[in-house]
């Protein structure tokens, strides 16, 4: 039983406010992903939960205890570091069993749990090796095994896959997801890779500049970004945005105009139209555009076209018959279009 409650956590380093009153509630057994660009405060938030960093204001709760003033060892957490932080002077077995030894678990129990952990992560044949004799992926698994055998109800992971090559990463991603299904620890997982976040998280908290911009299930965030920032950060390619204003019941901008299905404010209000690449079709006499580039990507083609002066990415079938400089028309799936205030970037209700 370990839900995590972060209440208005604030952390200031010198002149940088790394966390500006972040509140986040994580349910017991949930896999929560912290996602955001570099420097937005993900690691800082995770370290505040771990106790490696003290919050300057706010509270942190784990289970039914307020742990704000407790040392890391008293918080009942286990952590996987971005650099893995496996101990070079201990064998794999020594590393995995380190925490258990510190907790004074009886020796036979340690051996058994180390073995179990090694089996879970496929490390049995490496138990006697030193980290210097392991590959990056193996070291990463040692770090995960070392955290898992602690049986701590909370598992914290800081970009554990960022040092792996693309293929290994795909594999490790699936492994971690399977592992979570098996062990069901409350997990906070930090990443700046939105694909990782989408594929692994029960929920995602998107962070920006020391604050949480949106919390929600992956598809919810993907479909209904709370702001221009979130829409632009999640998805590959990111959401397209067209700037314009309300004109005579429609929405018009540089080189285009579309009807509005429902009123979006008074005449002249500046808005952003947000639409994803896969919700645009080419042809059918919609918005006039000019093709810039066509990128065949195997399963589909990515067409970049210009509307007015804005580049728009369109997902098209591989066999799409358009060429650079060709004039085309684009039609947006109206039910998938999202509206944002042009000034603040925050989404309007659908």
């Amino acid at each position: 039983m370990a839900a995590i409650g972060i209440d208005k956590a604030t952390k200031i380093f010198g002149r940088t406010a790394a966390l500006k009153g972040v509140s986040l509630d994580i349910r017991d057994g949930e896999f929560m992903v912290l996602l955001g660009p570099s420097g937005c405060g993900k690691t800082t938030l995770l370290r505040c939960v771990a106790g490696l960093e003290q919050v300057d204001a706010g509270r942190v709760r784990i289970g039914d205890r307020d742990v704000t003033d407790l040392a890391p060892r008293d918080r009942n957490i286990a952590m996987v570091f971005q650099s893995y932080a496996v101990f070079p002077h201990m064998t794999v077995a020594g590393n995995i069993g380190f925490g258990l030894r510190m907790r004074r678990v009886p020796r036979p129990d340690i051996q058994q749990r180390v073995r179990q952990g090694a089996e879970l992560l496929g490390l049995v044949s490496f138990l006697d090796r030193y980290p210097a004799q392991l590959s990056g992926g193996q070291r990463q698994r040692v770090a995960v095994a070392r955290a898992l055998v602690m049986d701590a109800p909370v598992l914290l992971m800081d970009e554990p896959l960022s040092n792996l090559d693309a293929l290994l990463r795909l594999q490790a991603r699936a492994d971690l997801k399977r592992l979570h299904k098996e062990v069901k620890r409350t997990t906070i997982y930090v990443t700046h890779d939105q694909v990782e976040a989408m594929s692994m998280g029960d929920r995602i908290a998107v962070m920006r500049d020391g604050a949480i911009e949106q919390i929600g299930a992956p598809m919810e965030i993907y479909d209904n970004p709370a702001s221009q920032f979130v829409g632009g950060f999640i998805g590959s390619p990111p959401m397209n945005f067209l700037r314009g204003a309300v004109r005579d019941g429609g929405f018009a901008g540089d080189g285009f105009s579309v009807p509005l299905s429902r009123p979006r404010g008074e005449q002249g209000r500046e808005l952003l139209l947000g639409v994803r690449a896969e919700h645009i079709v080419i042809g059918g006499g919609g918005i006039p555009a000019k093709v810039l580039v066509v990128e065949p990507l195997g399963s589909h083609a990515l067409v970049t076209a210009v509307v007015g002066k804005t580049a728009v990415k369109v997902q098209a079938p591989v066999d799409v018959a358009v060429k650079p400089d060709q004039a085309i028309s684009l039609r947006f799936d109206e039910s998938r279009v999202r509206w944002m205030d042009a000034g603040s970037g925050t989404a309007l209700p659908n």
């Binding site: 490696l52 957490i77 286990a78 952590m79 570091f81 380190f98 907790r103």
Partner: peptide, 8 residues
Amino acid sequence: EAAQTLGC
């Protein structure tokens, strides 16, 4: 820090 999270 890892050692600290592991009980040191």
